[in-house]
Design a protein around this nucleic acid. Sequence first.
DNA 1: ATTGAATGATACGGACCCGAAACGATCATG
DNA 2: CATGATCGTTTCGGGTCCGTATCATTCAAT
Lengths: 116, 116
Amino acid sequence: MAINMRPSQALRLWQQVAVDEVVAGIPDLSTRQIAILLTIYLDPPPHTVRGLASRLGVSKPVITRALDTMGALDLVSRRRDEADRRNVLIRRTVTGALFVERFGDVVIAKARELPT
Amino acid sequence: MAINMRPSQALRLWQQVAVDEVVAGIPDLSTRQIAILLTIYLDPPPHTVRGLASRLGVSKPVITRALDTMGALDLVSRRRDEADRRNVLIRRTVTGALFVERFGDVVIAKARELPT
DNA sequence: ATTGAATGATACGGACCCGAAACGATCATG
DNA sequence: CATGATCGTTTCGGGTCCGTATCATTCAAT
């Protein structure tokens, strides 16, 4: 069952979720950071800096810096790939999993409240 | 008709939209900026710095700075309220309206593509 | 006119991010 | 072993944003 919504509903949904996040005092992530975070948690591992940079069409330092910031928030963690020590494997954390899960719940709740 | 979706669909939708925005090279707005922008375009005017700060539970400088940035991107504009010259009325722009409209279309498109 | 409240902008030191370039570490190939 | 490619990080100057406090302007009430 594909999800169908009108433009006004789509925009209202995005607004409600964004406002809810701001009011809740959640870390103010940028669109880039959200894209990286959700890709790590939704797409199958392994995730590497280069892979994420390629997927998002950004430079590697962009990924490195985003991982620095989100790592400080304990939303993701990094670990050397022992098979090929040039690689860094990006891993999920308990905190990050809870964050993503809660975020999904907010989206669902706001979607359910949308006016017809 | 309320929109119903499962957690995996909600998160996947957010990821698809965020990744699409990043790949498209859109200005990398923060969650705060998006909340402000959509509130200006979806909620009925007039919009003031104080009103937005109150609505989002943030300080006035946060709103002022976000308006500076989004004003430089021509997404919003400011104008003195001639009735009460202490107020600044935040106004929509053609560029901003197109940006918001296009964003809504992206959300709809990604929602329609969601797997069952 | 004078005082006080209200509004939005600004100053401050500190932190983060940008794109481009260079870097060290590691691997694969000869 | 060398050599070159690959991977992630770091550096650089410049910009943006943070929270807190203060500011100038304007209005309202004495």
